[in-house]
Nucleic acid binder design. Sequence first.
DNA 1: CTCCTATTGATAATGGTTATCATTACCAAA
DNA 2: TTTGGTAATGATAACCATTATCAATAGGAG
Lengths: 161, 161
Amino acid sequence: MQGHFYRRNRGSGWWQGQFKGCGYRFTFPRRLILDVLSSSSMHLSAEDVYLEVHKKYPGVGLATVYRTLELLVQMGVVSKSDFGDGRARYEMNKGPEGQRHHHHLVCSNCGLVIDYADFIDEEAKLLKKVERGLSEKYKFEINSHLMQFYGLCEKCKGKKD
Amino acid sequence: MQGHFYRRNRGSGWWQGQFKGCGYRFTFPRRLILDVLSSSSMHLSAEDVYLEVHKKYPGVGLATVYRTLELLVQMGVVSKSDFGDGRARYEMNKGPEGQRHHHHLVCSNCGLVIDYADFIDEEAKLLKKVERGLSEKYKFEINSHLMQFYGLCEKCKGKKD
DNA sequence: CTCCTATTGATAATGGTTATCATTACCAAA
DNA sequence: TTTGGTAATGATAACCATTATCAATAGGAG
């Protein structure tokens, strides 16, 4: 490995701090993976990330991508979702500038996934309330939540299958 | 296969109707699988179901269990969840007597899953509202939703890892 | 600069789920 | 009741995303 060309990219200091704060090293492959994740607004699979990273720097292996993604999920930086196509999807949760939390709308027929944040404000209020109630009743310390709606998208609705 | 001993069990007529109504046959293995699912309040994996069914009738294969579970999910009778342990979990959604819809509280550390329905009334209202809004805006026909909270259970909270 | 340890890359192994295919069971119609 | 067409089944091989392994390398504190 010869990862000595550190590209000057926004937020690298912030990221470095995040990693160090968690007791991890901020390595070159990890930086590349974060780059890919933060420059895409898609729901990327581990392989998607791997292919993208591989373009920029072919020396990064698939295992490292999986390991880093897992790490980022544990750090709360990335969230992992399952849309039912047999592979996990990853997307940025928060960054230096912060990012809007959103939920998903999944078409059970064609797999289309729509992010929405429109009704989040109202949802958020209730979610907070529910979280408080649940925390108290079940002595749980709630850190995150997952919320998805399943149904048929416009196109699949028409096809009546 | 010699599935000629139809056990007289509650709701079999109802189930038969459900299957026929969807254009499927109500076979012996399917009945057994439904029995297992409805007599357990746990979140069963496909293998759990297989082992249980296998006890009563060793002639039922694993593939049939998977196929039937998938079918039941499509029929909306069973819901499939992922609690992050690498295998899907199945549980009854509705039955002859109906059953209370509930959500999950998942411990990210030990994997404990708690079902709750306590705050459902309030949640339900908002969910309906959100569903209406989303349906309209994104032209989606929403059929179901998934809602889970992640965090640390009472025991794991204490151990600070 | 040096040392210790976390991290990495290549690859084998794992294991849940799905596909395949010959056989069997269901059920409507004769 | 018999029959015929087709859905369903069981055994097993195949699939494939993810994880484990391990020797080699890089990060960073001192």
